[in-house]
């Protein structure tokens, strides 16, 4: 494999990049279970820090899971019918609409949060409620759901399948529930995992939208980085990794699977 100096250089760059990404991750895992990070592993391994994270931040972990689930349900209710309607009307207007709902991908979360705050910041019951953060999460994750479902729906011959169902007497809404949605399942699954993964990790919007009584997991992380000792911050990061890495892997697997149905 390493026939030429060029290959060796390529391998070196690849390994260096891997080290750059992996080393701090491992450090944080290690620091999270080390008694005293400054003294190193020889000070012993412990689950004490994880326990402290649990007492300090379990509420924020549960809030994040709750928000991710609500976000998933919302994006399913809003995104799947919308993807279907976009797939059924593949015109210029649909392209523009798709472009518009994709704006939250392009516009930084901070700017979106500012925009939301200026319209709804003074609506007291809403501003301090978890659903205000949820709106931000749905705004940010919705384009992923729509696109994921739309790409599968555009790839299957939805029009002919629906004509088949119509000729058998199926009314429009049954064609949606019996034909369009089940056959777009790989896209729905990939979209769902993306939505949950992104919602759990969302910080930029959430930081601006949250209140002191409503801290999500990443907000709690920022809090621990700023005010807790390194071991606790690391242990919290470790908890986050344990949640997010399986989700990320499932998401990549589901996306690859959805891609396969497209070819």
């Amino acid at each position: 494999m390493l026939k030429s100096p060029a290959k060796i250089l390529q391998l070196a760059v690849t390994l260096l990049a891997c080290a750059f990404l992996l080393v701090p991750t491992l450090q944080s895992v290690l620091a999270g279970v080390t008694v005293n990070y400054f003294q190193g592993v020889k000070s012993g391994l412990t689950l004490k820090w994880i326990g402290e994270v649990w007492t300090l931040y379990s509420a924020s972990i549960f809030l994040s899971i709750w928000l991710a689930l609500c976000c998933l349900i919302s994006t399913l209710i809003i995104g799947v019918p919308a993807a279907y309607a976009l797939a059924r009307n593949p015109g210029r207007l649909s392209r523009i609409l798709e472009e518009f709902i994709s704006l939250p991908l392009a516009i930084p979360g901070l700017a979106l949060a500012l925009a939301l705050l200026q319209v709804y910041g003074s609506v007291q019951g809403f501003r301090a409620h978890w659903s205000f953060i949820l709106v931000g999460h749905v705004l940010y994750t919705l384009p992923f759901m729509v696109r994921s479902v739309l790409s599968v729906m555009a790839a299957i011959d939805l029009k002919t399948l629906e004509e088949g169902a119509a000729s058998l007497g199926a009314p429009a809404w049954r064609r949606f529930t019996d034909i369009a949605v089940p056959n777009a399942m790989p896209g729905v699954l990939a979209g769902s995992l993306t939505v949950v993964t992104l919602s759990i990790g969302e910080f930029n919007l959430t930081w601006m939208l949250h209140t002191p009584f409503l801290k999500t997991l990443p907000v709690g992380l920022a809090d621990s980085y700023a005010s807790m000792r390194l071991e606790i911050a690391s242990a919290y990061t470790l908890v986050f990794f344990v949640m997010i890495v399986p989700l990320l892997m499932a998401m990549q697997w589901a996306s690859a699977r959805a891609q396969r149905t497209l070819t």
Partner: peptide, 11 residues
């Protein structure tokens, strides 16, 4: 109706 591509429901 029998369609050219059959339009059988894969699900």
């Amino acid at each position: 109706m029998v369609f050219q591509s059959y339009a059988l429901f894969p699900n």
